[in-house]
């Protein structure tokens, strides 16, 4: 089987399983929505501009719901030792990693696709930026977070209290992507020209490439007992 087919096979399996169970979807959407509601109560957005706080609020919602998605992603493989079935198969283990990154990115993207319009309505904000730039920024940051998160999720799921350990390990490593996500989203929502945040986009792209490449190389060792 080609490498890309194996990646797609793993991602498809996760998506199909989720479509049936809807275990994650409900949790992720309600969690992200709850974050928006809490911040809506905490700040008076008739006084504060949404562009100044909104990107931070959005990424708090996406990152925390992303942690739930990441935790679930490997928990389901550890249950019933399903991961052994995959590790014993002849597919490249980095294809398994990339399949997981793809599935998690798609789950997070689905949450973002609902929560961003909801936040626009909830905070009474008029979006004046470019849709293409917004999509680019959300995709790069989401993939970066899923890339580093999937690696740490694979490391922590076999430990006791892995769901507690995951955010403790992940958040320090995800600081660059969280900063870049808030900065770039802020520029995009304000409709500023691309050149003003091109360096942040470059940082995000470099982070994505470095973490994806490092994880592809390391993943085999991470999965070894």
């Amino acid at each position: 089987m080609s490498f890309l087919r194996a990646v797609a096979l793993v991602a498809r399996k996760d998506l199909l399983s989720e479509l049936r169970s809807r275990e994650q979807a409900v949790t992720l959407f309600f969690f992200a929505l709850l974050v928006l509601v809490v911040f809506n109560f905490a700040f008076d957005f008739t006084v504060i501009e949404f562009v100044s706080l909104g990107p931070g609020i959005l990424w708090v919602a996406f990152i925390f719901s992303g942690v739930l998605a990441l935790s679930h992603s490997f928990q389901i493989e550890r249950e019933k030792d399903r991961i052994l079935g995959i590790l014993m198969s002849p597919i490249d283990r980095s294809a398994f990693y990339l399949g997981k990154v793809l599935a998690t990115s798609l789950f997070m993207a689905a949450v973002e696709a609902v929560i961003v319009p909801v936040s626009v309505l909830m905070f009474n904000y008029r979006f004046s930026g470019r849709i293409g730039a917004a999509i680019l920024v959300f995709v790069l940051n989401t993939v970066g977070f899923a890339a580093v998160g999937t690696l740490f999720s694979a490391m922590t799921t076999r430990t006791r209290r892995g769901e507690l350990l995951l955010p403790l390990l992940l958040f320090p490593a995800a600081v660059p992507i969280a900063l870049a996500a808030v900065k770039t989203t802020s520029h995009v929502l304000a409709g500023r020209p691309f050149r003003l945040y091109a360096s942040w986009v470059a940082l995000t792209s470099a982070y994505d490439v470095i973490f994806l490449a490092a994880a592809v190389l390391l993943f085999d060792s991470v999965l070894e007992e």
């Binding site: 049936r20 019933k80 079935g85 198969s89 002849p90």
Partner: peptide, 25 residues
């Protein structure tokens, strides 16, 4: 490898489970 754990995905059908493994191999 066969163990007391089944390695099967609960929210996939039996056919989908086996087809998934057939594709892995």
């Amino acid at each position: 490898l066969l163990s007391h754990q089944t390695f099967l995905y609960d929210h996939l059908t039996a056919f989908e489970n086996l087809r998934f493994y057939a594709r892995l191999y």
